[in-house]
Design a protein around this nucleic acid. Structure first.
Lengths: 346, 346
DNA sequence: CTCCAAACTGAAATCGATGTCAGTGATGAT
DNA sequence: ATCATCACTGACATCGATTTCAGTTTGGAG
């Protein structure tokens, strides 16, 4: 490995001068130094720089599942911000598991300048360790019980649940089911509360057998939908708590040859690239994804700025938006007025 | 920050002894040391360890686009391997651009022990710099002109193109179009060659106006499909070079109210989670995704193993597999025998 | 030509952990 | 009680870059 000493020797100066040159200070013999660097192909050692400066120029990002298109988009948003900065992203999956999150965070705090986390559960204790380690922390997508002291970029999950409920109410549904994500995550809990609460206010109760809880993964969307279909009186509409569970629900409905929205309406949370191309095109509650990543990263970089001076936690809450497509319609199979379509039959 | 000296002082031993304890050597006063570590909340500095050992325990992963479900799955596969190892993943997007790849690699080589790369173009020079830096390099998905000296995990792109062609031939298509990815990437070039070559051998020529080249992004799939549709005599079947371009093609066909496969058959490369749920369910050439990530990471970790001893480059080539669904059918709109379905009309 | 301020330079200490090497202390045999 | 052996231990140098501090050089004014 070629070090700053090698460059210094070749250029006939001291390492200190080379170091100054590298950092853009004015230096008498800059030509000789530049030449030596080029000829030797010198690059400063990141480890040595970190040790001296205490900064790693690395941001840790922990998400439950990078193959979830939502998190992929969020991470891409973060990456678009770091591209023009000296920072890089250290990525880890927690797989929706607090233990894995724990392990990975313990390791991450030693390697990064800051962390962006979508915590596996609200009751998570780990982030407090992160706090101990004095590593700035920003939450994205999900919050923490007592996490108000941290920066966060969230969406109005409660409002999103409400939008879904209002949409189904406006279509005239009264037998409405919710398949929720883990209730000890903020999105899981709030989306359900917004949904069920709004229905209740309108006089529509969601009985326990319609009020099911899964884990944000496709398989649980599939299973819970099957169990809804096996009821003596299945619902006329289903609200699924995220993109993967919606997909699972859609698969289950297809497999059981249920007509959507003829027999059952389906509304999801989070849009998909393929949303408009599905059978039928999905009605969903949408939210900014890429932008959430951008905002979270900006918030973190601001904390990392030595001139920042601390300050209160910034809590950004973005709005959700209903996208009406063809998977929802009035109960009984009358097509939604939004689009005319043929009822499928087999 | 609490250092090994603090622990040593508290435990009444020398830093050297604490270091030995950390590395699992036998030590007289291990209780006192363990207690000091716990009380002080000590974690060794990753930067100092890297500087001393010359290893960062970090793997650089550079992909064109993390929001492409294929690459998301590949990265998840890699991550599943590093989980049980002390390694972490430094992730970067190249956005299908050689310049960005360049920038990011120059930075990465200083920070990581090894790199897994899906290069933006075959003519890329950058990886050679990586070689200069003595950082082990593994290719995934895409290869390099003259890259035979490097480990690689690839798929049989040529064979995949052939499978697509044979499928369309068996259905009786003769007016067949290809919308390819960038031809200076290995997959872009080979998928097209396998496809066009197989058709040619069967006596079916693909005229220039049917032989279009895009860039693996959804938008180009959309645009190229529109231009095919504007021809006086549009093709009866389209082969799209990757998942995103297939999606673009599907959108274009929907927007133009083309019946699939009634008027035009569509076959894609790479399956999607939503593949079976689309209108119509897509026929695709599928390949292992998660597994490719796993294999690439294993290959790299093997190189990193001090006991490895170099050896020749391992080049793994996986097979593709045709998944027949409902987006392909004989020309003229006869439904595929695989599934009965209603012809859409508006 | 002399002198002073400003601009630049290099030796050396430092960041935190590790590995070497020359011990020190304990153990067992005689 | 003495000595050889073995198991540990601590002082110190080291990894590569940065920063301080005490110079040295340069340029301009007088």
């Amino acid at each position: 490995m070629v070090t700053i000493h090698d460059v210094a020797a070749r250029a006939g100066v001291s390492p200190a001068t080379v170091s100054r040159f590298l950092r853009g200070q004015r230096v008498r013999s800059y030509e000789a130094i530049q030449a030596a660097i080029d000829e030797l192909g010198y690059w400063p050692s990141a480890a040595a720089q970190s040790l001296k400066s205490g900064r790693t120029n690395t941001i840790g990002v922990v998400v439950p599942d990078i193959t979830n298109p939502y998190f992929a988009a969020v991470v891409k948003g973060m990456e678009s911000v770091t591209r023009t900065e000296p920072y890089r992203i250290l990525l880890a999956n927690s797989d929706e598991s607090s233990e894995q999150e724990d392990d990975v965070l313990a390791d991450l705090v030693r390697r990064v300048d800051g962390i962006i986390l979508a915590p596996a559960t609200e009751q998570d204790e780990t982030p407090l360790h992160v706090r101990d380690a004095d590593v700035p922390l920003v939450f994205v997508d999900r919050d923490l019980a007592g996490g108000e002291r941290f920066d966060a970029v969230l969406v109005d999950n409660d409002g999103g649940g409400r939008q879904a409920a209002e949409h189904l109410l406006s279509l005239g549904h009264t037998r409405v089911a919710a398949i929720s994500g883990t209730l000890d995550t903020t999105p899981g809990r709030l989306r359900r509360e917004g949904f069920v609460g709004t229905l209740a206010k309108a006089g529509v109760e969601v009985p326990p057998e319609y009020d099911l809880v899964g884990d944000f993964k496709e398989h649980s969307g599939y299973q819970l939908t099957l169990s809804l279909l096996s009821l003596p009186e299945p619902p006329t509409a289903i609200f699924a708590a995220n993109n993967l569970m919606t997909l699972g629900a859609l698969k289950a409905l297809h497999d059981m040859r249920i007509d959507i929205p003829g027999q059952i309406s389906l509304i999801g949370f989070d849009d998909l690239d393929t949303g408009p191309l599905l059978r039928p095109p999905l009605t969903v509650v949408d939210r900014p994804m890429f932008e959430q990543g951008v905002l979270a990263m900006r918030l973190l970089l601001r904390r990392l700025d030595p001139g920042d001076g601390g300050g209160l936690a910034s809590r950004v809450v973005l709005d959700t938006k209903l996208i009406e497509r063809a998977s929802t319609a009035p109960p009984g199979g009358h097509p939604s007025p939004a689009r005319t379509r043929k009822t499928r039959s087999r």
